[in-house]
Write a protein that binds this DNA or RNA. Sequence first.
DNA 1: CACCAGGCAAGTA
DNA 2: TACTTGCATGGT
Length: 215
Amino acid sequence: MKRDHYFLATYKKLNAHFGDLNWWPGNSPFEVIVGAILTQNTAWRNVEKAIARLKSKELLHPAGILEIDDSTLADLIRPAGYYNIKTQRLKSFIRFLYNGYDGKLDNMFAEDLWRLRTKLLAVKGIGEETADSILLYSGEKPIFVVDAYTRRILQRHDVIPGDATYKEIQNLFMTHLPHSVPLYNQYHALFVNTGKHFCTRKPRCEGCPLQSQVY
DNA sequence: CACCAGGCAAGTA
DNA sequence: TACTTGCATGGT
């Protein structure tokens, strides 16, 4: 209806401003998942360092993470912060992958989307945003990722109330837009850039492509 | 110096 | 159910 247009028009404005962002940065589906866990409440710059260190030790694959001991892994991912808890989170995902899917991402992603999402949410260290990032950016499944930037931008434009749940926000996009992987991929990336450059914590909306956008 | 970054789980009442 | 707190590095 009318709101379908809002979500598409918003996308078009942001897309015209930022252009193709080519997310997710990462060379393999497994690297994307490691990045999704490491970037929780953490600047991506720091995650890149941690990933580079894992790569340099040839450990950026499921068997590598499975075999390395906790203290060595913690030391390697140290630049990403929260290194002890993230060590446990990487390990718990790896155990999940081996227990249910023989350690193979192809097996995991062959499962039904929403069934897999529920299972991922049961893994310690994987919440809604991380689960959806894994599904969309690693598994190329059509699911919309909601993050702090998305929430803040929508709130500031009075699209959602302050107490809107993750699911409500996700449903907003998934009911008003086609279930398209490239669309959801780029849209989320656009929100992150908008949140970084314009719709920051401190309300300074100078030059924001969405300034005149009305819901 | 304070504040922030592509969250999540566990604890408390 | 509804808050609050711990987790930690590195950039601005």
